[in-house]
Structures are given as C-alpha cells and as structure tokens.
Amino acid sequence: MKTIISNPIDKTSVYLCAGLVSAGGALLLNVLPVLFGAFAEQFGYGEQQLGNLAMAMNLGFGLVALASVLWIQRVSWRVISTLASLLVAAALIGMCSGPAYPALVLLMALAGAGTGALYALAMTIFGDSSQPERAFGFKLGMETVPGALLLIVLPVALAPRWGLQGMLITLAISMLLMGIASLPWVPRHSARRQEAGAGEPLPVCRQSQTIAWLSLLASLVFLTGIMSVWAFLELMGKKSGLSSDTIGTVLALGFIINAGGGFIASSIGLKAGRFLPVALIIAAEVGGLVLLAQFSSLATYVAGVMCFLFSISFVLAYTFGVTAEFDVSGRLVVLGALCLSIGAAVGPAVGGLLIETYGYMAVLLFSGACSISVLAIYGAAVLRSQSASVRGLAC
C-alpha cells in the first residue's frame, strides 16, 4: 500500500476544490431529470428521444473515462480541468439556440465527454490520498451538494422566468466556476507521478491489483442496482398518487441526505473497519427497498427514499477507497468514472425492462440482489486486503 509523507492531497483546501471539480463532473447526471423535462416541454421530445440523448451523454462520458487511463497521469490536472470545463460550457451554450435533434445529440455527447474527463480527474486526485475512504467520502458528499441545490433552483427560480436558455446558461456558468475557479488550490500532478519522476519505481503486486479490481466490480454492481431504481423513483410515487411537486421535494431532500452519507463515511473512515459500516448501510438500503415495495403513505415513501439514497455515497466511499489504496499504478481508480457511466446506462435499461415485464416489485428485487452481491464481492476484497497486509503482499 502507498504511504506518502505530507501528502499534498490531504488538505482541506484541496478536498474542497477537488470536490468542486468532481461536482462539475457529476452535475449533468444529477440534474438530468429537470433538464430533460425542459427539453420535453420546449422541443416536444418523447421518452425515446430523451433516452437517446441520455445514451449519447453516457457514451461520451464513458469513452473519455476509459481513455483517460492513457493520459490522466501525464497531463497537468489544471489543464485537464480547464479544457474539460470549457468543452461542457460550450456544449451547453450551443444548446441554447435550439439546434436540430441530431446536433443536440452531438452536443450531449460532447458535454458527456467533458464531464467524464472531470469525473475521471476527480477520481485520480482523491485516489492519491493517504486516507482514501475519508477522501472519497468527502468527494461523494461534496459532488452531490451543487446538484441538489440546482434541482431546486432550476425548476423553481429559473425555468419559469428564463426558460430552458436560462437553465443552460446557469449550468454553463456553474461548470466554469466549479471546474476552473478552484484550480489554484489543486496540485498540477499526481504524487505517484512525482515519485516516479524522482526515480522511485512503483511496485506492482498481483494481490493488490486483484483487490483493486474486486472493489471496482463491487462499485459497478452497486451502481447498476442503484440506478435501476433511481430512474423510476418519481414514477413509483406517481403510481401511488403523490404529486410531482411533492416527489420533487422528496428527491431533492434525498440528494442532500445522500451528500450527508458521504460526509459521514468521511468522518468514520476506518474507525469501525472496512466491512461492518458497509454491511450496516446496505442493510438499511435493503430496508428502504422493502418500504418502497409496499408504501401506502407519504411518510413511508419518504422513509424508503431516504434509506435508499443515503446508502449511495456512503457505500461508494468505501468501495472506491479500497480501489484507490490498492491501485498502486494509479490507473485503475480512474475507472470508477466508467463504473458510473455503465451503471447509469445499464441500470435504467434493466429496470425499465423488468418493470414492463413483471412490475415494480421486480426492479426492487433486482436492486436488492445487486446490493447483497456487493457485500459478497466487497467482502472478498476486504478479506484479501487483510491477508495481504498480514503477509506483506500489498504494495
């Protein structure tokens, strides 16, 4: 495992500013329901056309996240963040003119590419921490806050007065503030890169790489299960007679609760070990799914949503943390962004198929099965990490 003395990443200023970069990378995913609602209202797009826009964005996000393995450790972090933020902002401004649908698909893909680069960069920055669980808990909490605020501000304060154009300009300005204004407090390069440049070879251990891959797999399975339900939480509420305004308020509050989960994971760190906190929170998440499966009142719906959403940042803080600690090359942790992209694409597709074929209970069962599988996969990674530490095999 890596040990870095006076790690430049583990500073409050870096956590805050790199957290803003991460928030920029997650921003469009977080506000997608509101943005697509505005697209549908202004352009008259149907569900299939909106789905294709989401696919284009996720495709751009995922491809850039995958490709970033080749250059994320070679190019200045500040240059990456600046160029990616400008790309997203330019794509959003380009949408203001009401382009034809094919052009809009291309702009969404470009915006996805830019946010994918920002998210991959944030994964790399926080992955350099000497306390990865703490770092990723803060990252995941921090990146949720701007999205939660904009989920409230965009439809309530901006859309009624300035419409879609006002929303897009606000998102573009937000991207520039988060991705560029905070960069003076973000290091230019990885500590791993600096060590390598100083002539200190980075050891590679097969055991460590296996642990990193297992924790990445756990992240992917968890995100797929989460996104399969997240995409349909509003429809679940409407099926039981809840109003759109009520559901929107609940989901916005749930986003804030999700951020709190990340900050709580950051404060706990490894004080209670790696496995027990994750097991307890996944148990709470499964309890939330049970509530959603049988809710008949607003209170039950709220309780189910809160238990469900609280788990996201908390669990990912630990799975990403293990990946970062045992990824001695610094190249695997960046694939956490790819996990997010695949989960956001595959989860809703599987969820929609299950709902159309078997009903809402089926997708809730699928999500619960994914979470239980995560416990097994993550548990295997933790056991291997403990064995590696005892035997001195971890690099």
Rank of each mutant, 00 (worst) to 15 (best):
I4A: 11
N7C: 09
N7E: 07
T12H: 12
G24T: 04
A26E: 02
G44C: 11
G44W: 07
G46M: 08
G46I: 07
E47V: 13
Q48V: 15
G51Q: 07
N52F: 15
N58S: 06
A67V: 01
R74N: 09
V75C: 08
I80A: 06
S81Y: 07
L83G: 08
A84T: 00
A89M: 03
A89I: 03
A91C: 06
G94F: 12
G94D: 10
C96Q: 13
G98A: 07
A100F: 13
P102M: 13
A103M: 15
V105I: 12
M108L: 14
A111N: 08
G114H: 04
L118Y: 03
L118S: 05
A120F: 02
P132A: 13
R134C: 08
K139H: 15
L140G: 12
G141H: 02
G147L: 09
L150G: 07
P155W: 10
A159C: 02
M167E: 09
I169A: 14
I169K: 10
T170H: 06
S174I: 06
I180W: 02
S182A: 15
P184Y: 08
S190W: 05
R192E: 10
E195Q: 13
A196D: 09
A198Y: 09
A198V: 07
A212K: 04
W213C: 10
G225P: 01
S228T: 05
A231R: 08
L233C: 04
S240E: 15
G241P: 01
G241H: 03
S243F: 07
D245M: 11
T246W: 14
T246S: 14
I247A: 14
G248N: 11
T249Y: 14
V250S: 05
A252V: 00
A252F: 01
I257L: 14
A259C: 05
G260F: 04
A265T: 03
A265W: 07
S267D: 04
A272Y: 15
A272D: 09
P277L: 04
P277I: 12
V278K: 07
A279L: 15
A283V: 12
A283F: 14
E285T: 03
L289Q: 05
L289H: 10
V290G: 07
L291C: 14
S296N: 13
S296Y: 08
L298F: 09
A299P: 03
T300W: 13
G304K: 02
F310A: 01
V315I: 11
L316K: 08
A317D: 02
A317E: 04
A317H: 03
G321C: 04
V322T: 06
A324W: 05
D327M: 04
V328L: 09
S329Q: 13
G330D: 04
R331M: 04
V334F: 04
C339H: 00
G343V: 02
V346H: 00
G352N: 05
G352K: 08
L353D: 08
L354F: 02
L354T: 01
I355E: 02
T357R: 15
Y360K: 00
Y360V: 00
L365E: 14
S367V: 06
G368T: 03
G368I: 06
A369R: 01
I372V: 15
S373G: 11
V374Y: 10
A376M: 13
I377W: 08
Y378H: 05
A380G: 03
R384Y: 09
S385K: 03
S387A: 14
S387C: 05
A388P: 00
